[in-house]
Design a protein around this nucleic acid. Structure first.
Length: 573
RNA sequence: CGGGAUGUAGCCUAGUGGCUAAGGCGCCUGCUUUGGGAGCAGGAGACCGAAGGUUCGAGUCCUUCUAUCCCGACCA
């Protein structure tokens, strides 16, 4: 491509509202422009990178016998009512009506549509397994879109769905996709970790996230210093040595007047006891049912663990009115004893290492002291309902967990029969018996993958694209556009590099040398072939590798071979 | 949805209630220049987010609305 004719404008300054490197640099490099909050134009340079990422995805999936389809972005509400998600998905689902007043939504994901498609076409075990995928624009009306393409409302996603006869077969499909994802992100040139993940509202009981490591990542990952264990902080578990205290059961429960002391801080001050001796009682609405979750006062409740422990679809902190109804007191005085309503109580296991604790009395301005959790609280379930922390012990070896920031670019889920049961997606087995198809689903954020690559590969001058997904693999930079011998040689290299199968741009704009070099660094072509008048006289040109900044002089006749082999090396890194 | 901030040309910014809204980048014309975002001269481009209000006079003060961003809550 000739830059003189290319639809491209670069900027020296970042737009005021851009904060993160990927957003700033992709905007400055003329790749993306915001149309409105969380919604972007992809300009030619960005679209080239998107298409390269998509090509890698297609190759890796197609060779594993996945089949590409395309489903509609507009989906009718009845499918969502059938799966039960029309009511559960919340305002993130953009809903609208057509002229006949029928309900529709813009698809944030396609489990409903694909399940419907498969049940209409698959009847027999002979047709399984099958894996279908699409690359398509999704819409989620995020409360707070941010960081450019990192969290947009409209975004390009690859979503794949596997259909198998039973759990065992489905887990093979899952494993196959896990391997495909590993190959895809490796080929994209990204440094990433596959981590254990919570399943959230999509359901199912096994999931991994593919996290690109970058300081600006929104997710926290805990990873073992010795073994391969890695998990999202929501999911991570550690080995905890919980010993029953020697004086357990000796304390006596008594009620104390604690006027106005609602928060853990206020109570620790008031009673002169440390926060780890407090029992924090949180009332949640879990699938519309109030539930109390008890954790130590100095710890946070982990809603993802609560959700998966109960197999629930939705976990929300209860509203003030519900809390008052359940406890019979103002917010701030909830406790596990004498609740007004008989609700499920989840107890975090770490409470059992303590005795003589403090909790709310379910009576405004009163707390209870002398609580022994094991003796006094009747749990519905005891388990791990808090977060793991860096420095704690790995559940699989002697190592300790370390913290990283990550950008989630892909996630794989084992779904089981959650959707196939709800939507009657069945097959007949060998014995003529009807069974639900076992599903898995697999997503990759394509635009987010591009943004993550920039987050991970940039410097103060611009982007350093991994060669496999760079918009162009190389650029020819004639430094003196007024000198015929420079331009002629540049043109010659341009055609030779293209003939060698290299995706090449030529900066034939009538600009000065510094301007072109700065633009090249900003846009981040992996290799620059720099052609200067003085070097030509010595029979030399220069090759600059963007990722290392290394420049080296080569003979004119060797340049094409040098570029070819250098590029091959970059792609194999 | 709570807290905070900001809307002035395509982009970045300046602008005590007072003349025709200023500068840089970018854009157009000409000359000059060509190894790290050149120089000179000329030019185009703004109903100052919107609507009300206060005032002799509003980009500036007040009210409402709206948009965008940040923190939080939320999030396959």
């Amino acid at each position: 491509m000739r830059l003189s004719r290319y639809f491209l404008r670069t900027y020296k300054e970042a737009p005021r509202d851009a904060q993160t490197p990927s957003h700033i640099l992709m905007h400055r490099a003329g790749m993306i422009q915001k149309l409105t909050s969380g919604i972007y134009n992809y300009l030619p340079l960005a679209w080239k990178t998107i298409k390269k990422i998509e090509a890698i995805i297609r190759e890796e999936l197609d060779r594993r016998d996945c089949q590409e389809v395309l489903m509609p972005a507009v989906q009718p509400s009845d499918l969502w009512e059938e799966s039960g998600r029309w009511n559960y998905y919340g305002p993130e689902l953009l809903r609208f009506k057509d002229r006949k007043n029928a309900d529709y939504c813009l698809g944030p994901t396609h489990e409903e549509v694909i399940t419907d498609m498969v049940r209409r076409n698959i009847n027999s075990y002979k047709q399984l397994p099958v894996n279908l995928y699409q690359i398509q624009t999704k819409f989620r009306d995020e409360i707070r879109p941010r960081f450019g393409l990192m969290r947009g409302r409209e975004f390009i996603m690859k979503d794949a769905y596997s259909f198998d006869t039973d759990d065992e077969e489905s887990k093979k499909s899952y494993q196959k996709m896990y391997e495909a994802y590993t190959d895809i992100f490796t080929r994209c040139g990204l440094r990433f970790k596959a981590v254990d993940a919570a399943t959230g509202a999509i359901g199912g009981d096994m999931s991994h996230e593919f996290q690109v490591l970058a300081e600006t990542g929104e997710d926290e990952i805990l990873s073992c210093s010795k073994c391969k264990y890695a998990a999202n902080v929501e999911k991570a578990v550690t080995v905890r040595d919980i010993k029953k205290p020697a004086d357990a059961g000796k304390c006596e429960v008594s009620e104390v007047h604690t006027p106005g002391a609602k928060t853990i801080d206020e109570i620790t001050d008031f009673l002169k006891k440390s926060a780890d001796h407090m029992i924090k009682t949180l009332i949640y609405l879990i699938d519309d049912e109030p539930v109390a979750v008890l954790v130590r006062g100095d710890l946070e409740a982990n809603e993802a663990k609560v959700q998966s422990s109960l197999g629930a679809s939705a976990v929300f902190p209860a509203d003030e009115e519900t809390v008052k109804n359940v406890t019979g007191a103002e917010v701030g005085f909830a406790g596990p004893l004498n609740l007004k309503e008989d609700i499920k109580i989840l107890v975090d296991e770490q409470l059992y290492a303590y005795t003589d604790m403090v909790c709310g009395a379910n009576k405004t301005d009163y707390h209870l002291t002398g609580i022994d959790p094991e003796r006094d609280i009747k749990p519905f379930k005891v388990g791990d309902f808090t977060f793991a922390h860096p420095g704690e012990k790995c559940p699989h070896c002697e190592g300790t967990l370390e913290s990283y920031r990550g950008i989630e670019v892909g996630q794989v889920f084992f779904l089981g029969d959650k959707y196939s049961k709800a939507m009657n997606c069945n097959y007949l087995d060998r014995n003529g018996k009807e069974k639900p198809i076992v599903m898995g689903c697999y997503g990759i954020g394509v635009g987010r993958t591009m943004a993550a690559a920039v987050e991970q590969n940039h410097d103060e001058y611009g982007i350093k694209w991994p060669a496999a997904i760079a918009p162009f693999e190389a650029v020819v930079l004639p430094l003196q556009s007024n000198k015929e011998e420079v331009m002629d040689l540049a043109e010659k290299f341009y055609s030779e590099l293209q003939a060698a199968g290299i995706d090449t741009a030529i900066d034939d704009r009538k600009e000065r040398a510094g301007f072109k070099m700065n633009d090249a660094d900003l846009i981040g072509y992996p290799l620059q072939l720099i052609i200067g008048a003085k070097m030509i006289e010595q029979g030399l040109v220069e090759i600059k590798e963007r990722s290392t900044g290394e420049k080296r002089e080569v003979k004119i006749e060797d340049a094409v071979n040098e570029i070819t082999s250098n590029l091959a090396k970059l792609k194999n890194q």
